[in-house]
Lab assay of single mutants.
Amino acid sequence: SDEELKKRIEELVRRGNKDEARKLAENANSDEARKWWEKLEQL
């Protein structure tokens, strides 16, 4: 689900694993996940 995906992306970003988070968001084929990633990346 998008919610689970967003949690995983956020967790990866928090751990400093941005590349992994980006790949996850891009491969998810989910606009919501991509937007979430872009938002987190700004922080």
Rank of each mutant, 00 (worst) to 15 (best):
V13T: 02
A28L: 15
E10H: 12
K35P: 01
R14F: 04
E20V: 04
E11A: 09
R14D: 03
A28N: 04
E10F: 09
L24I: 06
A21G: 02
L43T: 09
K23Y: 05
D19N: 07
G16S: 02
R22M: 06
D2I: 15
E26R: 05
E4Q: 10
A21S: 00
L43K: 07
D2V: 14
Q42P: 05
E11L: 05
L40G: 01
S1Q: 10
D31F: 08
D19I: 08
A28R: 04
W36G: 00
R22H: 04
K7S: 10
N27D: 13
L5C: 06
R34E: 02
V13N: 02
S1I: 14
R14M: 11
G16D: 02
V13W: 15
D2F: 15
A21L: 08
A28K: 02
E32Y: 08
R14I: 08
N17V: 03
E32M: 11
E38W: 05
E26C: 14
K6N: 05
Q42L: 11
A21M: 02
K7H: 07
K6Y: 14
K7M: 10
R15G: 09
L24E: 02
D2C: 14
R22F: 06
E10R: 11
G16R: 02
L12V: 01
A28Q: 05
I9E: 00
E38R: 06
K35R: 13
L12T: 01
L40W: 08
K6P: 00
R8D: 02
L43C: 14
A21Q: 00
R22Q: 06
I9S: 00
W37R: 04
E3I: 10
I9D: 00
E3Q: 11
R34G: 02
K6G: 03
K6Q: 05
Q42K: 13
E3H: 10
L5S: 01
E20W: 03
K6C: 14
E3D: 13
L12G: 00
K6V: 11
K35I: 11
R22I: 04
E38Y: 07
G16I: 01
E10I: 13
K35T: 10
W36H: 07
K6D: 01
I9R: 01
E20A: 12
N29I: 09
L24F: 03
E11W: 07
R34L: 14
L40T: 03
Q42T: 09
K23A: 12
K6S: 04
K23W: 08
E41S: 14
L24H: 01
E38N: 05
V13P: 00
E26Q: 11
E26P: 01
Q42S: 12
E11T: 04
A25S: 04
S30L: 05
R22W: 09
D19H: 06
E10L: 15
E3L: 12
A33S: 04
L43R: 08
L12E: 03
Q42M: 12
D2T: 13
A25M: 14
K18W: 15
L40D: 01
A25W: 11
K7T: 07
E11S: 09
E10W: 13
K18L: 15
E10C: 15
E41A: 14
D19L: 07
R8K: 10
R14C: 10
E4H: 08
S1G: 11
W36P: 00
L40H: 04
N29E: 11
K18E: 05
E26L: 13
W36I: 07
Q42E: 09
K18P: 09
L12K: 00
S30D: 06
W36M: 04
R14K: 10
K23F: 06
K35N: 08
I9H: 01
S30C: 08
R8N: 03
N17W: 07
S30Q: 04
E26V: 06
L12A: 06
R15W: 05
Q42D: 06
S30V: 03
E38L: 08
A33K: 02
L43A: 12
E32K: 06
I9W: 02
A33P: 03
A25Y: 06
G16M: 02
E32D: 10
R22P: 01
E41R: 14
D2K: 08
A28V: 07
A33C: 13
R14G: 04
W37E: 02
K6T: 04
K39P: 01
R8T: 08
E4W: 14
G16E: 01
K18T: 13
A33I: 15
K6L: 15
K23P: 01
A25V: 15
R15M: 13
E32F: 11
W37Q: 03
A21R: 00
A25F: 07
N27G: 11
L24T: 02
R22C: 07
A21Y: 00
L5H: 02
E4K: 07
L43V: 08
R15Y: 04
A28Y: 05
N17C: 15
A28M: 15
K18M: 15
E10S: 08
S1D: 12
N27W: 10
I9C: 07
E3T: 10
Q42V: 09
S30N: 09
E10N: 05
N27T: 13
K23Q: 12
V13Q: 02
A21E: 01
N17F: 14
D31L: 08
K39T: 10
K7Q: 10
E4T: 09
G16P: 00
L40V: 07
L24D: 00
W37S: 01
N27M: 14
W36L: 09
K6F: 15
R8F: 05
L24M: 06
G16T: 00
Q42A: 13
K23T: 09
R14A: 10
E4R: 08
K23I: 11
S30F: 09
E32L: 09
N27F: 10
N17P: 00
W36C: 04
L5Y: 05
A21W: 02
K7I: 05
S1C: 14
L24Y: 03
E26W: 07
R34Q: 06
A33Q: 03
K39D: 08
L43P: 05
K18I: 15
A33L: 15
R8H: 06
D19A: 10
R22S: 04
K39C: 12
W36R: 02
L24W: 03
E26S: 06
S1E: 10
K35C: 11
A21P: 00
D2H: 11
V13S: 02
E32I: 09
S1H: 12
L43E: 13
E3Y: 11
E11G: 05
A28I: 15
S1A: 11
R8A: 09
E38V: 05
A25G: 03
A28C: 14
K7N: 09
E38F: 06
D19W: 06
I9T: 00
V13L: 15
K35W: 06
E32S: 09
K6I: 14
S1M: 15
D19R: 06
N17E: 14
E26A: 08
E4V: 10
N29Q: 12
W36Y: 12
Q42Y: 07
D31V: 08
R15P: 00
G16L: 02
K23G: 03
Q42R: 11
A25H: 01
N27Q: 14
N27P: 02
D31R: 05
D2L: 15
S1Y: 13
D31K: 06
N29T: 10
L5T: 03
W37G: 00
W37L: 15
E26G: 04
R8Q: 10
N27A: 14
D31P: 10
E32T: 08
K39I: 13
E3C: 15
D19Q: 09
L40Q: 05
R15T: 12
L5K: 00
D2S: 11
D31G: 04
L12M: 07
E20Y: 03
D19S: 08
G16Q: 02
L43G: 08
E3F: 11
L43M: 13
V13G: 01
G16A: 01
N29H: 09
A28T: 07
K35Q: 11
D19M: 07
D31H: 05
E10Q: 10
E26I: 09
R8W: 08
L12W: 02
K39A: 13
R34C: 08
L12F: 03
R34A: 04
R15E: 10
N27Y: 08
V13I: 14
R34M: 14
R34D: 02
A28E: 03
S1K: 12
E3P: 09
K18H: 15
K23R: 13
E20L: 10
N17H: 14
W37I: 14
K7Y: 06
R34F: 12
W36K: 00
E11Y: 05
K23N: 07
S30M: 04
A33N: 03
L12Q: 02
L43D: 10
E32A: 11
N29S: 10
N29V: 07
L5I: 06
E32Q: 08
E4M: 11
E20T: 04
L40K: 02
K35Y: 05
L12S: 01
L5D: 01
D19Y: 04
E26Y: 11
K35E: 11
K7D: 04
A21D: 00
K39Y: 14
E11I: 05
A25R: 02
N17A: 13
D19P: 03
R15C: 14
E38D: 07
I9P: 00
V13F: 15
D31Q: 07
R34V: 07
K18G: 08
K6E: 03
E20Q: 08
K7P: 00
L43Q: 10
E3G: 08
L12I: 01
